[in-house]
Amino acid sequence: MQSIAVLFSLVVLSIFLLFSINFLFIKNDLYYQSFGEQITISRIDQMLDLSKKYQWLGYAVIPFVILMRVFYTSVFLYIGIFFTELKVEFSKLFKIALLSDFVYVLSAFAKLVILIFFKEVNTLEDLQFQPLSLMELLQTKSIDPLFVYPLSLINVFELGYFLVLAWLLVSVINEASRERPINFGKSLKLVTASYGSGLLLWVVFVMFITLNLS
């Protein structure tokens, strides 16, 4: 029941943040400025109609994206713990992955704040950034599209996600195996090895897809 409440909060907050960004920044002018050099106005208008028609889809997929992300993290944590001979139930790992997901909500909130106060939005490209990431320090135009996602992933919030996951994992492991307690350092190592491997695999998968679809 508690997990459902956490999931519900995550979904509501994520939808609210996405809605805020859409409401405040996605205007018709943004499309004209983004595509006007290459596509005629009538085609951009058609594109706008389509995007408005299917905007609800962007909100509808949020619960599934969160669930898949949490499940993926839990699976790799479970595999990591399986290798250490410790015993923790999958549901408990799922719960801490769910709680850690609030870091991504914080990341979306930071993006909204940056967009409102610190960034000028002229094209749709200006909206596609990851706050406090390595990508933000580099010149976006000089980076091959293939490396945009991995460089965006190296950010303060991803680091925070690792730390929160490790912090929550300490109590879960110590509760499950009292005879072999672990400290934060060990937990962080475990998270880095398990979730880190999963993340690395995911990054390579996204790069593979980017290359084959672009």
């Binding site: 293939l146 690395l200 290359l211």
Partner: peptide, 17 residues
């Protein structure tokens, strides 16, 4: 399994790039 999947994706990503 993880190594094979990771290896396959890495190999094809580098080759494709």
């Amino acid at each position: 399994v993880i190594s094979i999947i990771g290896g396959f994706l890495t190999y094809h990503t580098i080759k494709g790039y």
